[in-house]
Simulated scan of single mutants.
Amino acid sequence: MDWYLAGIEQLAIVRGLKASFVAYPILNALHIMSIGALLTSVWLMDLRILGAFRSLPYAAFVALLRRTAFTAFAGALVTGSLLFSVRAREYAAMSIFLTKMTLILLAGANFLVFMRHAKGGDEPAGGVASVLAVLSLVLWTSVLFAGRFIGFLN
């Protein structure tokens, strides 16, 4: 595994990131912007599921935020992968990084379970939706905190 991670660190794009004075900070800022958009859209969706913003139509509100969340997640995935690539061996050895990745997988699984309960864009019925919304809030917020700890626990 170490040879694979070392290979990632030697890719031309990664060497370019390391050599550039501005590329890495810009990439980092784009990652933070993506995370901000992701968490904002997830929080607003989950709060709507929990009963906030009832004056807004559920299906349209959630559909807009879901598209925003998917786009923001894609941005965070791309930028995060590039940030990881600069110090792949170091990050892969950090338990907090592995915790963050696990939390992201759990948040994704939670979303898939939620989608299974949502039917045709309508508001999911029952207490399951509320439990999944609270779990989503906890998981995505935990992802944020784990990510912030990565920079301070190396």
Rank of each mutant, 00 (worst) to 15 (best):
L139I: 10
D46M: 01
G51T: 12
A125T: 13
L112E: 10
T102R: 02
A76M: 13
G36C: 15
L98F: 08
A72D: 08
L44V: 08
G108S: 08
Y91V: 00
D2L: 13
T141R: 04
N110Q: 06
V42P: 03
M1Q: 06
G151L: 06
A37N: 06
F53K: 01
N154Q: 13
V131R: 13
S34Q: 00
R89A: 07
L153A: 14
G151E: 02
W3G: 06
T79D: 01
P25A: 07
L112D: 05
L135W: 05
V143L: 03
Y58A: 01
L5E: 05
F70R: 14
F114W: 05
R67I: 11
L103Y: 04
Q10V: 03
A60Q: 14
A19N: 12
T40L: 15
L39D: 11
A146D: 09
L112T: 12
A29I: 11
I150F: 02
P57D: 14
S41Q: 08
G151W: 00
H117C: 07
A69R: 00
L30H: 07
W3I: 12
F53Y: 14
V86Y: 11
V131T: 14
S95V: 12
L106K: 02
G75W: 03
S130F: 02
H31E: 06
W43A: 15
A60F: 08
L44K: 02
W140L: 02
L39Y: 07
A37T: 11
P57E: 13
I104T: 06
L11Q: 15
L47E: 00
V14D: 10
A88Q: 02
T141D: 10
I104L: 14
F152N: 13
S55Q: 14
A118W: 04
V113G: 03
I8D: 03
W140N: 05
E90V: 13
R67P: 04
D46V: 03
L139V: 10
L132G: 03
R89T: 15
G108A: 05
A19D: 14
L106D: 05
L30W: 07
M1K: 05
L17G: 05
A60N: 12
G121T: 09
F111I: 09
S142M: 11
I26E: 01
Y91Q: 06
F145K: 08
L56N: 05
A129N: 07
A69G: 06
M115P: 01
A93T: 09
R87A: 13
V78C: 10
A23T: 12
T141C: 10
V22A: 14
T71S: 12
V134W: 07
V62F: 04
V128C: 07
S81Q: 09
A93D: 11
V113N: 02
A63W: 01
L83S: 09
K100H: 09
R89M: 09
I8M: 13
V134T: 00
T99E: 07
M115Q: 15
V113M: 07
A63Y: 04
M94A: 09
K18N: 11
A129D: 04
D2I: 13
S34R: 00
A59S: 15
D2V: 10
A6C: 09
